[in-house]
Design a protein around this nucleic acid. Structure first.
Lengths: 205, 205
DNA sequence: AAACTAACATACGTGCGTGCATGTATGTGA
DNA sequence: TCACATACATGCACGCACGTATGTTAGTTT
């Protein structure tokens, strides 16, 4: 009895072990990045917060940079996992943008979301792999927004104004700033995100 | 002849000398902070960019922290010097807020303006003197906006909605994000700043 | 113009955090 | 159950940037 499959109390396979620590370190790193940024991120703290030592970290990631890149990829994936359905909906572009804005506000209630903002500000004007990755992620969202705006213009649901790309840039930037400022101020965050989108798309006045 | 006051070519008094290098270092530090943030700011670079060495810097400032604090004070002063007249005007609160938003967009065309945003993000969740100073500066602006919004509510020119303080928070945050995103995209920055304010104040729909 | 002071440069000591190399324990296949 | 591999911990070396101490140049006073 109890020959092999008995003790499930603490999962035993190596792959599982590895995966657990991997995600634990990743989450700790995400929290750390959102709070301290890249430069102030101390790997010792990340590891200990996850319940491990720097050895584990260097075993699973090649170093600080790759850790940050992994976090960026992870945030991007979870964001699109949550926003993908909204982006794919087939109705009015304006309503889609509103839905995404609200969704983004909700997504950003977890401090993890600050990661992108923090890194974007930190690497906004510099040449750095992490900055590149963040820029790429933002550009992807920007592209989606630009397409939606262009569609709304053809559609007539969005009045004429600045070039779609510029409007998208403004929209994303403003939304980012808004959700940061309103962190934890639910439910106003969601409502004001909607207001922001409608206000900036609809020709004002 | 040429006894004393002759050579004005290169200003010679000590006080003037001191003032010149002081402001040169300050401007360099502001540029550096806006580009690299506090943690990544290297005093060697700041000094050399200003045309001096770290010795000069430590002669005029007690260290990195005081330098950053001086920059924050400087930004705050120049901002209010430029925005004060707009804030003091006696017309409709909405128009005042629009004017300030446009003014802010213009002010932020200089990369120097990124300073506040950068520091606010970097120290947003931490306990640090520089973070405190930035927070104080932002709070002052926030107070001005809150008062204007409250006046507009009593006035009837701003429809009901979230508490004035929350609206002000959203407005300032969104505006900050917008001008960062649109850096250098004149004249759209100004126009979209106006749109943003009108859209978020006017009840939309 | 000589003695003095303030502005600035150069050189060194120190702390901190990364990266790596070496040690230990836990799971895995014969 | 024994040899092996993989997950993880611990200790050391290096570099970087801050702060300070000391040296040099430019301006001021008598």
């Amino acid at each position: 009895m109890t020959s092999a499959p008995a003790r499930q109390q603490t999962r035993r396979t190596q792959a599982d072990r590895r995966a657990r620590t991997h995600s634990a370190l990743l989450e700790a790193a995400a929290r750390g990045l959102s709070r301290h940024g890249y430069a102030n991120l101390v790997l010792e703290q990340v590891a200990s917060e996850a319940g491990y030592s720097r050895g584990a970290l260097y075993h699973l990631f090649s170093g600080k940079e790759e850790l940050a890149l992994a976090v960026v990829r992870w945030v991007q994936e979870t964001w699109y996992a949550q926003m993908g359905p909204l982006l794919a909906q087939k109705g009015d572009p304006v309503e889609t943008l509103v839905a995404v804005a609200r969704g983004h506000a909700v997504y950003c209630r977890r401090d993890v979301a600050r990661v992108m903002m923090t890194l974007r500000v930190e690497f906004g004007t510099r040449e750095h792999p992490v900055g590149r990755a963040v820029q790429d992620a933002v550009n992807r969202v920007l592209g989606d927004c630009t397409r939606l705006i262009a569609a709304g213009r053809r559609n007539g649901s969005i009045p004429p104004g600045p070039p779609p790309r510029v409007l998208a840039l403004a929209l994303v930037g403003a939304l980012e700033g808004l959700v940061i400022s309103l962190a934890g101020k639910a439910p106003h965050d969601e409502d004001l995100a909607e207001r922001l989108v409608r206000g900036m798309l609809g020709g004002s006045r």
